[in-house]
Design a protein around this nucleic acid. Structure first.
Length: 581
DNA sequence: TTTAGGG
DNA sequence: CCCTAAA
């Protein structure tokens, strides 16, 4: 662990001052649909607790994260500013080497840190850094001391609880259950206050340590260093978001709490997951509706083509198969400690039990991504990574392409769908009913996910690669295609999509008449030719992608045609006219 | 089967 | 893109 720490630190020092410019907001932008991230928070905290010695790195990661968010993706939230404000000073105090301008950071390094940060996407999604901060604080605290953890397990679970609880206000209604909890120490601190960059300087000053820069002076992995209030102080400087926890910790028996928490993670669960590019891409799918996933269970697993980045606990997917003793122990421990407290049990046990019982948890199709190729220092994950990969590899794609084609069946049908049940693979198949791709294909995909390629290329590659796939992926409309479509409409008018398809798109089999029509609809909206509720600008902003990629001449034509061939060809009576040839 | 329209 | 209703 020391090695890991140092290594990362070295990396950080070396690469940090590079460039942050390459940072893609992508990561941050995928958030909005992530309210359900809450659902994993308890687990996440647990994971973080489980990682004793990454303290420094973790904190650095947070700082970087803050910078990333605020500097590069200012559109995400106003929260960023406040955050940055607070963080900026702290960075200055704590890490002189990362006080470079926002553009001096390196994405690669950031990614590394993101690993430490665990679930960046989730964090961003929740628009709530407080959770993350608490996590890190826990991390740090945990790193400090590993000894006598054996007593006060209740405290540990308590801590976890409060962590998961305090983040609930930042999330949408789905987390009502947690909101009802009442833990005196945490309940007194309104989370909402800490989310708006609200800076409580008094606290800071009070706790501030004169010269302590423990991040630079203290060697990682020193077990002899007790978690002192200094640590808490420094942590407190991180951000106000951390305050709830800090007050919790300091208000109660800080050491015990932390140690207990640590005890809970003596069976250490390493964070395995690093979202691969593929998943990032998947996440940016505008159609992502994570709420849906929660509601629907198995059916959703078949339909869902949007694997989500989630807690690596989902490695329990195929759980019985890939679950290592350590993991199971950890889970059991958590449940055991949960019982020891006087707090509502369901709040704690929910994440775990839900994962176990809810198939949707299992089938996010991202198991193999948890093997985190980008975390070289991980040992245990690597041990079972191949297993998971081999098991889930093929099916990792399943959610993506197993979505049964509803409606009229199209040309190619699945070769085999979920027929391979054996006693040992029963669970696995349950989770991944569709297992059809060869391992080779999966492995190529796996490797490809690492590639750095433009999204377009990604899409196209996938399409090509799965040419025999029944599933039709998004296919970008090229400008020539759009112009062809416009020509066709000019010729046939709107409403005769099959004709247009036959004559203008006879060569491109992947464009169905419906596609043409949809595209036309989009063009209308984008061009503002349609007098919709929203004005042009608004529409254009919405469909910026389309607008961006098309010349203005196209839109002129669109508007012309729109007036010439009004799309919703309603008869005076209101019913649409079906034009006959 | 095809189109319209909503998601 | 997907789905359903309607023609």
């Amino acid at each position: 662990m020391d090695e890991k720490c140092q290594r990362v630190r070295m990396d950080q020092e070396t690469h940090f001052p590079k460039k942050f410019a390459s940072m893609k907001c992508q990561r941050v932008k995928v958030d909005d649909s992530f309210a359900p991230a809450l659902e994993d928070e308890a687990v996440e905290v647990q994971h973080l607790l489980a990682e004793p010695k990454t303290d420094h790195v973790s904190v650095d990661g947070v700082l970087c994260l803050g910078k990333e968010k605020s500097s590069k993706c200012s559109e995400t939230n106003g929260f960023s500013y406040g955050f940055n404000d607070g963080m900026g000073r702290n960075i200055g105090g704590l890490h002189s080497h990362i006080t470079q301008g926002p553009d001096d950071l390196d994405l690669g390094v950031l990614d590394g840190f993101l690993d430490e940060v665990d679930e960046v996407d989730d964090i961003h999604a929740a628009n709530d850094f407080s959770v993350a901060y608490k996590d890190f604080i826990l991390d740090i605290e945990l790193a400090e001391k590993v000894s006598y953890l054996d007593y006060t397990p209740c405290e540990g679970s308590r801590l976890r609880n409060s962590s998961s609880e305090s983040q609930s206000p930042g999330c949408s209604g789905s987390s009502n259950g947690a909101a009802g909890m009442s833990e005196s120490s945490t309940a007194t601190i309104p989370e909402s206050e800490s989310k708006n960059g609200w800076h409580n300087k008094s606290v800071k000053c009070k706790l501030r340590r004169p010269s302590g820069d423990k991040w630079n002076s203290q060697e990682p992995g020193e077990d002899s260093v007790c978690p002192t209030s200094d640590d808490i102080e420094d942590l407190d400087e991180l951000d106000d978001d951390a305050k709830p926890l800090i007050s919790l910790v300091s208000g109660k028996n800080a050491k015990k709490v932390v140690q207990a928490a640590k005890a809970g993670t003596s069976a250490r669960q390493k964070r395995l997951r690093k979202p691969t590019k593929r998943y990032i891409e998947e996440l940016s799918d505008p159609k992502s509706k994570h709420v849906m996933e929660r509601k629907s269970d198995l059916s959703a697993t078949l339909k869902d083509k949007r694997p989500k980045i989630r807690s690596h606990d989902e490695l329990h997917c195929g759980g019985a198969l890939s679950c290592t003793p350590k993991e199971s122990f950890s889970e059991n421990f958590n449940q055991a400690t949960s019982k020891g407290t006087d707090e509502p049990l369901h709040l704690r046990s929910k994440p775990v039990s839900e994962r176990r019982t809810n198939p949707s948890f299992i089938s996010k199709g991202r198991c193999w991504s948890d093997t985190s190729q980008n975390e070289p220092y991980q040992v245990r994950p690597v041990k079972f990574a191949p297993k998971v990969l081999s098991l889930t590899g093929p099916s990792a794609q399943a959610p993506f392409e197993s979505r049964p084609r509803r409606g009229r069946p199209k040309k190619s049908l699945p070769l085999s769908v979920g027929k391979q049940f054996s006693s040992s693979l029963a669970i696995y198949n349950l989770c991944f009913p569709v297992v059809e791709d060869s391992c080779a294909s999966a492995s190529t995909e796996f490797l490809e996910s690492e590639d750095d390629e433009s999204e377009d290329d990604c899409v196209k590659k996938r399409i090509c690669k799965k040419s025999n796939d029944r599933r039709k992926h998004q296919r970008m409309w090229t400008t020539p295609e759009v112009m062809k479509l416009i020509d066709g409409i000019a010729q046939y008018g709107t409403g005769r999509w099959t004709d247009i398809k036959k004559l203008m798109f006879s060569s491109t089999a992947y464009r169905t008449p419906i596609d043409l029509r949809d595209k036309w609809r989009n063009l209308l909206r984008a061009s503002g030719a349609q007098k919709r509720k929203s004005n042009k600008k608004e529409v254009k902003e919405k469909l910026k992608d389309v607008v961006r990629s098309l010349p203005s001449s196209v839109f002129r034509r669109v508007r012309e045609l729109a007036s010439l061939h009004p799309y919703p060809r309603f008869s005076p009576g209101g019913r649409y006219i079906r034009r006959k040839n």
